[in-house]
Every structure is written in structure tokens, then in C-alpha cells.
Amino acid sequence: MKVKQIAIFLENKSGRLADISHTLAANAINIRALSLADTADFGILRLVVSETEKAQQVLKSAGFTVGITEVLAVEVPDKPGALDLVLQVVSKAGLNVEYMYAFTRKSGETGMLLFRFDDQERAIKAFQDAGCKLLSDEEVHAL
């Protein structure tokens, strides 16, 4: 039920993001979802890619600090109120969202919400009890 994501440490320097995209492009790695968290000094780029281990390896070779972490992917219909329904489940369960990002899989059809919780196991149970559709690692990477 957990989806592998790679996270990359980035200094706030011009061109670093392009160095990452270039490394991934040169190795034919496809980006499925992306989020960039920024602070005054550094950023953390989080990516769900077609080949997680290969991406980690090539980015490491290019000199980046890379980690693999797990997130939860919830599939929702692409319509107003879909995010709210999921966040109501999160709120009622008293779960703490560390971060989240979202994207549309097919306009007008489905969207995907990616979550990192302080307690991932409890979040899985809350989503399952509420009937939310959690996507597997295989499903997300095969998009």
C-alpha cells in the first residue's frame, strides 16, 4: 500500500534543478509526480519516477544526496470536493500530514493524492475503513 518516492537535497543554487532533470532525461527515467519544498537555504525535491532504484543510483553518481521514502497514494475522482472527502477522513482520524502533493492522472477522470503522515500505518487503516482507494507501488509506477 506504500509507494516509493525519491527525495533529493538541493541547495538554493541556480541550475541545480536542471542538473537533476538532465540526469533523469539522460537515463530515460520518467517523472510521474513531483513536489519541491523550499526553505531560505535549501530545497527538497520529491519525485515518483518510473524506475526508483535506477533514479537513486544515477542521481547519487551525479553527486546528489538521495533518499528513498514511502508515501501513500490515494486515487480520487477528478471533480470538486474529492480532496475534501479524503482530508475529512484524515482530520477525523486525527492524523498529522507531514506533506502532500497531488496531480491529475487523466483530466476529468481521476487524480492522485500523495501523502506522508507521521503515522503511516494508522493512515492506511483510516483510509481503508473509509473506503478510500489506495494505490499500490506497482500501480503508481505503471501509470
Binding site: 527525495a7 526553505t39 535549501f42 527538497i44 533518499g67
Partner: peptide, 15 residues
């Protein structure tokens, strides 16, 4: 320098 051992995907951990 941030090594892999201390790197986290969460901003608050690095801060």
C-alpha cells in the same frame, strides 16, 4: 555537508 545518513525528506527534520 548533508550526508545520506542525516538527510530526510521532511523539511522540519533538516531544520
Amino acid at each position: 555537508e548533508v550526508s545520506e545518513q542525516i538527510f530526510s525528506d521532511e523539511v522540519k527534520s533538516l531544520e
